[in-house]
Design a binder for these strands. Structure first.
Lengths: 218, 218
DNA sequence: AATAATTTTTAGTCTAGACTAAAAATTATT
DNA sequence: AATAATTTTTAGTCTAGACTAAAAATTATT
């Protein structure tokens, strides 16, 4: 059994691992968790004791298989709760994150199994991210950043990179959402912006935005 | 905003207050929370600082109006989550307590309002206890312990005193549940047991059990 | 290769919330 | 009313998890 604090570290390391592939630095973890590197060093030693991570001084940290499974389980809970909030409690996708941060720490296997069943075994959370199964397997869908599409390529919006309320509310305002068809009509070299057709509507999209929308090509 | 620990103290004091009416002793609180009186003294000073309780050394503790409202809010959350677990997630009434103990600490007014609405604004939790409204008002129904009924008195089972899984599972086994009609056919002076008819079925009930079932007389 | 800059760890503190043992206050008993 | 028993508080510790400042190690730069 892990404390909330330990769980937050495990989750942070997991998320950082999916980007960098090799040892995660204490600094990177500190930044993600808005804490200090010295606090991270302490915690990482503790997690190493508990066989959650492998840690060698000055070498950064990697999750063990046990650690990965633990992380997947926390993320499973987080994402299932997000689905619940949006589908059942009228939350919008930009409101769910901080509540799910709390709910993910609730300890009860029955609760989460029943919730999964109650929600109809959803495969994705409201931001398009896949929900790990009970064993911690996370179906990896292949998706591309909108920013990587060439002129005339088409696809469906399947996820977002930035999940901040600011970005999500921006998408709502632009009426951009999951499941919509997107076609790149043109790319503007001057500012790397995109002329796209989203759900039949033409619009210009900045490079920053294009770097935060995931597309499944078709 | 209160810590989980502070919330647990507030809740404990609230529950003890409904029994005793006057200053709650640190010892009583310690017993309820399975901690030591010295720890309680410390916490009670802190809660007094925060205007949640009135505390005079050696005089016990009483909740302020603010404290009562805070307590009612925690209990509201606890009981709404219990309804959710039973109605939506197939928990039985003896399984909900410890999960609700965790869920009651989740901080999100929207969450709890939406949950209330999603559940259809329930008035009672699965054990028959009333759910405080948003303002902290708790509709007090008048109910009597089965043990206080005279021969030939009748009523409906509306609640339980002991909410331990052991007792609740015992009631399940005896097929005794909320909403059922109960009639006292006879009282046995020898062991203070009761001969009752519950839902048409005659049975003998010990004094201990009769002291843990609430009846609304009719 | 030596030095400078950066990152990471160590050593020492702090706070919340628990604990034990002893002291102080209250309540019960003679 | 004095003493005994009980309850409550105080004083001092401990642990988890945070922090700062300094030391040590690593990495980058000349």
């Amino acid at each position: 059994m892990f404390s909330q604090s330990e769980e937050n570290y495990i989750k942070a390391i997991y998320h950082l691992s999916s980007v960098s592939e090799k040892g995660i630095s204490t600094n990177a973890i500190a930044k993600k968790l808005e804490t200090k590197a010295s606090s991270v060093t302490d915690m990482v030693k503790k997690l190493s004791e508990k066989e959650v991570v492998v840690y060698k001084k000055y070498q950064g940290v990697t999750l063990t298989d046990f650690g990965k499974k633990t992380a997947a389980n926390i993320i499973r809970k987080h994402r299932l709760w997000e689905v619940f909030l949006v589908e059942k409690l009228n939350f919008s996708w930009d409101e769910v994150h901080e509540v799910a941060e709390q709910l993910e720490h609730i300890k009860s296997p029955k609760l989460i199994d029943e919730l999964d069943s109650f929600l109809g075994y959803p495969k994705r959370d409201p931001h398009g991210d896949p929900i790990p199964d009970k064993e911690g397997n996370l179906p990896q869908i292949q998706k591309s950043l909108l920013a990587t599409l060439e002129k005339n390529e088409k696809g469906v919006c399947v996820g977002v990179n930035d999940t901040s309320s600011e970005f999500l509310r921006f998408l709502d305002k632009q009426e951009i959402g999951l499941g919509q068809n997107i076609e790149v009509l043109d790319r503007e070299p001057f500012d790397d912006s995109f002329l796209v057709k989203i759900n039949g509507k033409e619009m210009t999209i900045s490079n920053k935005v294009a770097n935060n929308i995931y597309i499944q090509k078709n």
